[in-house]
Write a protein that binds this DNA or RNA. Structure first.
Length: 310
DNA sequence: AAGCTCCTCAACCGCCGGTTA
DNA sequence: GTAACCGGCGGTTGAGGAGCT
């Protein structure tokens, strides 16, 4: 035998809570607590609500010390840092931010913070590759605009970068699908800024993590670094000292080369260091933007990643 | 002023693991 | 041992509001 159903769904009220309902729930919980049984609570409190609805209302809105409103830069960093490491585990993230609820953080991430991070990437509307309805629907919020606007989007995150930026390549991750991997990659990249937070990457989330990796240069030479775990610990100066001026890196998996990303301390450096048409991964440069490509085996630009503004 | 589009966020839905009868 | 509930969680929805034309 199981238990009785939690509530009569046909006879419970749904939708927004009235101030009277809020007062009833608050008053009841202050007097009697939840007694460890949300399902029985509404009847005892005189509420025509489902127990689950009461629980949600209390936890997300009525309980004491709930913080509403703007998130601080510190909170932004904590959320990004944790999202980069554990993904959308909102309840765990919320546990690190006193007064914030998982629902609040989830909403904040989905409506604001994600866009702030994605502000690194501004679509190239002239690109036929991405000029389709699906793409437009997925990323409607980034007008082709200026460095100033990109900086506005990024807010406090870009402040004197000293570590490399790695832009994931389209071969490994399709930048313009709004999926968790891309966001985690971007969040990971932002961690490298001194004012951002932890500097450790967590690339175990990537399917090819740990495979042999190489760095390419426009002269065709290559340098193998062992694993891409090594690559993320290599400073740009070291790459330059090897003579790998392009900063395009890729990894070798089963003797096949997969574009991995690009190094540079600033967007401008990436733009200028990646502007040749040599190895896999190259760009063309213009005044304040650059186009990022993947090349095919014949070094032809075969896969346009997108337009980046700096 | 009206109509439209886009954004926000409270609330709901449905699933899962643990618990209970 | 097991069927079914409970609490918790993440994903999704849609009403209402803001902003634009």
């Amino acid at each position: 035998m199981g238990r009785a159903p939690c509530c009569d769904k046909a006879n419970v009220k749904r939708g927004p809570w009235s101030p009277e309902e809020d007062a009833k729930l608050k008053d009841f919980i202050h007097k009697f607590g939840t007694a460890g049984n949300w399902i029985a609570l509404p009847q005892k409190a005189g509420l025509r609500r489902c127990g689950k609805s009461c629980r949600l209302r209390w936890l997300n809105y009525l309980r004491p010390n709930i913080k509403h409103g703007d998130f601080s830069d510190d909170e932004d960093r904590v959320i990004c840092n944790l999202y980069a490491n554990i993904g959308s585990r909102w309840s765990i993230i919320a546990a690190q931010l006193p007064g914030r609820t998982d629902n609040d953080i989830k909403n904040y991430w989905n409506t604001k913070l994600k866009k702030k991070l994605m502000g690194l990437i501004i679509p190239n509307n002239n690109s036929s590759s991405y000029n389709n309805n699906n793409y437009q629907k997925k990323l409607p919020y980034f007008p082709s605009t200026s460095l100033h606007q990109a900086q506005q989007n990024l807010g406090p995150f870009i402040t004197g970068p000293e570590q490399p930026i790695i832009i994931p390549s389209a071969q490994q991750n399709n930048l313009f699908t709004n999926n968790n991997n891309n966001l985690m990659m971007i969040a990971n990249n932002l961690q490298n800024y001194p004012n951002f937070g932890a500097t450790n990457y967590n690339l175990q989330n990537y399917p090819n993590f740990g495979e042999v990796a190489s760095c390419s240069s426009s002269d065709g030479s290559q340098m193998s670094f062992g694993t891409n775990k090594d690559i993320i610990n290599i400073k740009r100066e070291e790459i330059m000292s090897f003579g790998h001026h392009d900063g395009a890196i890729y990894e070798e998996i089963n003797n096949q080369q997969f574009n991995f990303g690009y190094f540079g301390n600033t967007m401008q450096e990436i733009a200028t260091s990646c502007c040749t048409n040599g190895n896999s991964g190259s760009t063309t440069n213009s005044s304040n933007n650059f186009l990022l490509y993947n090349n095919d085996e014949n070094c032809n630009k075969s896969n346009e990643i997108g337009m980046f503004y700096y």
